[in-house]
Structure formats: C-alpha cells, structure tokens
C-alpha cells in the first residue's frame, strides 16, 4: 500500500527595503576589463610584428617580453577603471553599452592571444 502521508512546507513571505546603488562604477569596471583584455590581444601580435617592440617589452630578463605584455594591459585595466569609476561615481550609465565594450574587448583579447593568430604577424 502506497504511503499517502503528505508534508506541507510553508516559506516566509517578507519584504526588505534597500537603497539602490548607481551602476556607474560597475559599468566602469566592464569597460576597463574590455580595454585591458583588448590591450593584451593587440600587444601580442604587435610584439611579434615589431622585434624592437618585443625587446622593449622585456622588462625582466627571466620573464622576457611576457613581462611587458602582461603588465601593460593589467595597469591599463586598473587605471581606466579608477578614472571612469571616479568620473561615474554616484551616476547611472548604460549597462548594455558598457557590457558590449567589455565583451568586444575580451573577444579581441581571446583572438589576439591565440598562437595561430599572433604568429601570423611574426616578423620574417
């Protein structure tokens, strides 16, 4: 015989009021991430095409040109984020545009860091 016992589950219905925050600083971070990622995706093929630039990027003997190639996009990310974050503090901006810039930047970063792509720019 099947067990026909039933259990009733009641969950709480509550409300909470919180102060909403402006989206400016978050949108600044989306854009900054896109710019940092795009910088990485552009610096890599550029350093392949220009041997002098690759040499310039060698800021540490052990790490080689990878040192400059990674420090520049990282610093750029934090600088753009700080500048836009200050400018947009307490302000609302368009999230769709910021996210689009961020994602396009990441697409450039992913494409530019893929070896078959950047090796196509290697100086002969």
């Amino acid at each position: 015989m099947a067990n026909e016992n039933k259990i009733t589950i009641t969950t709480k219905a509550e409300q909470i009021e919180l102060a909403d925050v402006a989206n400016g600083p978050v949108n600044a971070s989306f854009i900054a991430a896109g710019i940092g990622a795009a910088a990485l995706g552009l610096i890599i093929p550029l350093s392949e095409a220009l041997p002098a630039f690759k040499t310039f990027l060698t800021w540490d003997k052990g790490v080689g040109p990878l040192s400059g190639k990674t420090i520049i996009p990282t610093v750029l990310f934090f600088i753009v984020w700080a500048v836009l974050g200050i400018l947009w503090k307490g302000k609302n901006t368009t999230t769709r545009t910021a996210v689009t810039i961020g994602l396009v930047g990441f697409a450039i970063g992913l494409i530019g860091s893929f070896p078959p792509v950047f090796e196509a720019f290697t100086a002969k």
Partner: peptide, 17 residues
C-alpha cells in the same frame, strides 16, 4: 605554452570585475 602564458592573464581581470 604560447597560448597558456598569454590567455591566462584574461582570467584575473574578468574575475576582479
């Protein structure tokens, strides 16, 4: 290695956001 050493640096930027 050429892919790994470069693409990895996208991860912390995205995670920080």
């Amino acid at each position: 290695m050429e892919w790994k050493e470069h693409v990895a640096w996208l991860a912390p930027i995205a995670a920080t956001v």
